[in-house]
Amino acid sequence: MPPEFSHIDHWIFDLDNVLYPAECDLFSLIDIKMGEYIARALNCDAVEARRIQKDYFHDHGTTLAGLIHHHGTDPQDFLDYVHDIDMSRLSHAPALYSAIAALPGEKMVFTNGDRPYAERVLENRGLGGLFDTIHDVLATDLIPKPEKAAYHSLISATGINPERSLFVEDMARNLRPAKDLGMTTIWVNTGSEWGARDHAPDFIDHEITDLESWITSLH
């Protein structure tokens, strides 16, 4: 283990586009489902539904947070619908499993999705049972990253020491609160405009493009 990571006791991973390659593009499937849900719930056409979806994502951290704020949307109804997608794009990653399993200390998933969806993703990646904790958007009382309260919820629920924690995330803006709390931050740069939004080097300790290669290199 490189000396700069020798103090890490808690390894925290975002889920989407981190624990599976961005090329799998599960979000394109979720994107379609969100558009369908909004069009039906708000009785609008597909173009207006997409505008609403993206505006809420930018303004509230997640589309769901915007829907709850503006329309009182039932979160479980939304999550069940948009996460009901085909997982066949995912494949098992035994090398990634081994590399994460060999890390010293706790392994956690911290996601703006919900636990059932996260568990399905992990099972289809062959990563089921690997993580000590899955802290989802329901565990944060529907407060999404990058809201500071979401990070405090994780800390309160797990008892981790932020200064001995490392957080891996593909959305650069979600790393700022983690860095403010003292975490070591790893940005997975997928090349997407969304991921690079609000990127700044003062809160990103390391930039990588592939999680499996990076973690394997630590050993």
Rank of each mutant, 00 (worst) to 15 (best):
D80Q: 08
Q76T: 12
L122P: 03
S88Y: 00
F167C: 00
E169I: 09
L122S: 00
I186W: 05
L29S: 11
E4S: 03
G113R: 01
V18A: 04
I208H: 03
T184C: 04
A46C: 15
T185L: 13
F5R: 14
D205Q: 12
A172M: 07
E163I: 11
L103G: 06
D141Q: 15
Y56T: 12
R89K: 07
F27M: 14
Y37W: 10
Y20M: 04
R176P: 12
T111Y: 05
E23Y: 02
V47H: 05
P201V: 01
L130S: 12
G105N: 08
W187V: 09
D55P: 04
D45M: 01
E36P: 09
P201N: 12
R89M: 09
V168H: 12
L26R: 05
P75S: 12
N124M: 00
L166Q: 10
A49H: 06
K107R: 04
N43I: 12
H69A: 15
G66V: 07
D80W: 14
P201T: 02
T190R: 00
T190S: 01
P75A: 14
S91M: 08
I52D: 03
D132T: 10
V82D: 02
V137K: 09
I143Y: 04
L211R: 07
W11Q: 06
Y97T: 13
L29N: 04
L211I: 11
T73I: 12
A149P: 11
I32F: 13
D136I: 06
V18P: 02
P3Y: 07
P146V: 15
G195V: 06
K148N: 06
Y117V: 06
K145G: 01
R176E: 15
F57V: 09
D198Y: 08
I8F: 01
I160S: 00
H71W: 09
